[in-house]
Design a protein around this nucleic acid. Structure first.
Lengths: 137, 137
DNA sequence: TGTAATTCCTATTAAATCGATAGGATTAAT
DNA sequence: ATTAATCCTATCGATTTAATAGGAATTACA
């Protein structure tokens, strides 16, 4: 299940990408238009800024803006920051690999085998979608 | 993230499929060989029986057995019973559809658009894998 | 007939995670 | 100065997850 954090984060990024003005977009505006609790969104925006997707301007008339082209923002990257691993089990994760406690040999594991396929297909989708695809002009 | 319930359930089904004898397979045996907490596995087996994947025999020399051919047991079905929806958001779920509170129009929603693709690809994988594929002889 | 071995069933618990809120500190425009 | 915005840390309540507890019902077989 996709967390609300990720869902809200994606919506916010899309909103900013569509805004396209020179002035930064404010949390309150996104919050209102996308029906996202403002304080919750605040913490998500902070995460997105700290991980290099957004820049911000403080104070009056402040807000957030993209610091890369939408076409450069891959969904794999956004998902890994907001949601964590893309794989459904850590033992098939590329970026968050962990061995399973219960598995003596993961190459013999039926779940492993299945989840590799799921991961590969999900990765393909997320790699081939950028913010530009989510927010067409 | 795949729940342990689903992971254990898939391993147990694979184990039984590989066993292939006439006698039912006992929870204690699966539990030992697959390193699954026995009492936890008990409840999972119950679920799998009640949803029509397994039959059981009670009492001494009892246990569980498949009531369909492994090639007839699709991963989509197992996943839906153990894990719930395959889709990452309810608004793109085929079997567990729910409208989002925050979305006035889901056809305009960027997350919706992306998650449809993820769902379709995951469905493909899970539809094309049966228990036979997980437990080759 | 009785004992051991097994599934069946319901309830409970401990820990983790999630979604959201609280409360202010800092910064910038006017 | 005042107002409006981001920044930061902490906390809370609800839900879910993983696991355990305790015994009832059933069956094999000595």
């Amino acid at each position: 299940m996709l967390s609300k954090k990720t869902k809200y984060g994606l919506k916010a990024l899309t909103y900013i990408a569509k805004s396209e003005g020179d002035t930064p977009v404010q949390i309150s505006e996104i919050s209102k238009n996308e029906n996202i609790p403002q304080k919750f969104l605040e913490s998500i925006m902070l995460t997105l800024r700290k991980s290099g997707f957004l820049g911000s301007k403080k104070g009056k008339h402040g807000g957030y803006y993209l610091i890369k082209e939408p076409s450069e923002i891959k969904m794999t990257d956004v998902m890994r920051v907001l949601e964590g691993p893309i794989a459904m089990v850590p033992c098939v994760s590329l970026n968050f690999y962990e061995k399973c406690d219960d598995c003596p040999d993961e190459h013999e594991c039926s779940v492993h085998k299945l989840m590799i396929q799921v991961r590969d297909n999900t990765l393909n989708v997320l790699r081939n979608n950028t913010l530009e695809d989510l927010a067409p002009k």
